[in-house]
Design a binder for these strands. Structure first.
Lengths: 150, 150
DNA sequence: AATAAATAAGACAAAATAGTCTGAAATCCG
DNA sequence: CGGATTTCAGACTATTTTGTCTTATTTATT
């Protein structure tokens, strides 16, 4: 009753914002960015962020390096990482295939009453996220000077 | 990480399904339907459902009547109740105006990096929900024999 | 080798959500 | 009136999500 339309959990939210921070901060080099810097810049709990970023490391989005001057970095070129891959790692693989009414096995063959509406919405979200790369987002953020913090 | 794209809380989910049950069950009469019947038919915890339905009663969607043969009923004609009103009562008024990244004050003037994508999505959801009435849903459910249970 | 800087891992606590239960109040019927 | 049926209200518990903290491990530097 307190509102949200919270499609993303806080964890995913933080992970996504962290990635956007990384790609918007790209200096061309492949230096590691520390979680301390990210958590400070984005005002996110350090330890909580750490756990989320480990998901992305395990998921093949990031590589990490320990020790002084260590941190995390994209494992692949930002052009090759689509938003959909990130969200699937953070929220689960079937994130874009769930029923709005929470009904088990709701699909085109066995639809819930709002399936026709929701399918369209999900389709658009899926399409948008499947065609938007982290590189595109980074460029957009820099060109338009967009914010990542409250 | 367990997936969901859970736009609706369980409480809202139950409330919406209960309303859809009511309108699909319409026998033309204005008899009250008991929460016991609904919770049984939809396999929802009785007491939990009760709390949610009280929100809808307080929100002006339902009227309730105690005692034998009592229950709940739509306060207004199903044609006049749009899905958007229901969701706003259950999830909060600004449900359709939140930022995907959870940033405070994200809007057209001060957008987050995914605002342009999310605004379109939200707009479509909002439009769909603002133009779909409970009556339309009830008719659809009956015509196509759609399910409200897992 | 010792120290410091960084991620990894996991125990723990707090808060939000979900669900259960008990009793009260209203209403009908005999 | 008295009992049965129903919503209303709120306390209580359980589960999930969120956040904190401590320790271990890796690596660079001196």
């Amino acid at each position: 009753m307190t509102s949200t339309m919270k499609v993303l959990s806080n964890a995913s939210n933080y992970g996504l914002r962290a990635l956007l921070y990384i790609v918007s901060r790209e200096r061309g080099g492949d230096a590691y960015i520390s979680l301390g810097e990210i958590s400070e810049e984005l005002d996110i709990s350090f330890h909580f962020l750490t756990k989320t970023m480990q998901l992305l490391t395990q998921g093949g989005i990031l590589v990490s390096y320990r020790g002084p001057n260590g941190g995390i970095a994209l494992k692949r070129p930002a052009e090759e990482i689509m938003l959909i891959e990130v969200v699937k790692i953070l929220e689960g693989k079937d994130f874009f295939d769930t029923c709005m009414l929470g009904l088990e096995g709701c699909d085109d063959c066995n639809p819930c009453p709002v399936h026709h509406l929701w399918r369209e919405i999900k389709g658009k979200v899926k399409h948008d996220f499947a065609t938007t790369s982290l590189a595109m987002m980074g460029q957009r953020i820099n060109e338009q000077n967009l914010r990542l913090i409250p």
